Amino acid sequence: MIPARFAPIVFGFILSGLMSFIVSGIAILRTAGFAEGLLSLWMGAWITSWLVAFPTVLVVAPITRRIVAKLVKGAPA
């Protein structure tokens, strides 16, 4: 089991993985259509996207939390 102090990192890892998987799949499908080798193209795009998405989530999430706390009444800071 992973210690609780790593929860934000694990959350960011899973969130960025799922989001980049979905978004890269949509982008590749729109670009290439149902072409031969679609899965290979998708996996290549996904890994590249995830390499960018994961550190981005770790940097952007705290900023986003602060913005939301200012916009939403009663939100934790």
Rank of each mutant, 00 (worst) to 15 (best):
M1K: 11
I2L: 13
I2T: 13
I2D: 11
I2Y: 12
P3W: 01
A4T: 14
R5L: 03
R5Q: 10
F6Y: 15
A7Q: 06
A7W: 06
A7C: 05
A7G: 04
P8G: 07
I9M: 06
I9F: 10
V10K: 04
V10M: 08
F11L: 11
G12I: 01
F13L: 13
L15A: 13
L15N: 11
L15I: 08
S16K: 04
S16R: 03
S16A: 13
G17C: 02
G17T: 01
G17F: 01
G17Y: 02
L18F: 15
S20L: 03
S20F: 01
S20A: 07
F21Q: 15
F21W: 13
I22R: 10
V23F: 10
G25R: 06
G25Q: 10
I26N: 06
I26K: 06
I26W: 05
A27P: 00
A27N: 04
I28W: 01
I28M: 07
I28Q: 08
L29H: 08
T31W: 14
T31D: 15
A32E: 08
A32D: 13
A32M: 12
A32S: 14
G33T: 04
G33V: 04
F34Y: 14
F34D: 15
F34T: 14
F34E: 14
E36R: 10
L38P: 01
S40L: 11
S40R: 09
S40P: 01
W42L: 06
W42A: 06
M43I: 14
M43W: 11
M43H: 12
G44K: 05
A45E: 00
W46A: 00
W46E: 00
I47V: 14
I47E: 13
I47L: 14
T48H: 08
S49N: 04
W50K: 06
W50P: 00
W50G: 03
A53W: 00
A53H: 00
F54T: 02
F54R: 04
F54H: 06
P55Y: 05
T56A: 15
T56E: 08
V57R: 00
L58D: 10
V59E: 03
V59I: 12
V60K: 12
V60C: 12
V60D: 07
A61C: 09
A61L: 08
P62N: 08
P62A: 07
I67L: 13
V68C: 08
V68N: 10
A69V: 00
K70E: 07
L71V: 07
V72R: 07
V72M: 03
V72N: 02
K73V: 10
K73A: 05
K73D: 07
G74K: 02
G74E: 02
A75N: 09
A75P: 02
P76L: 10
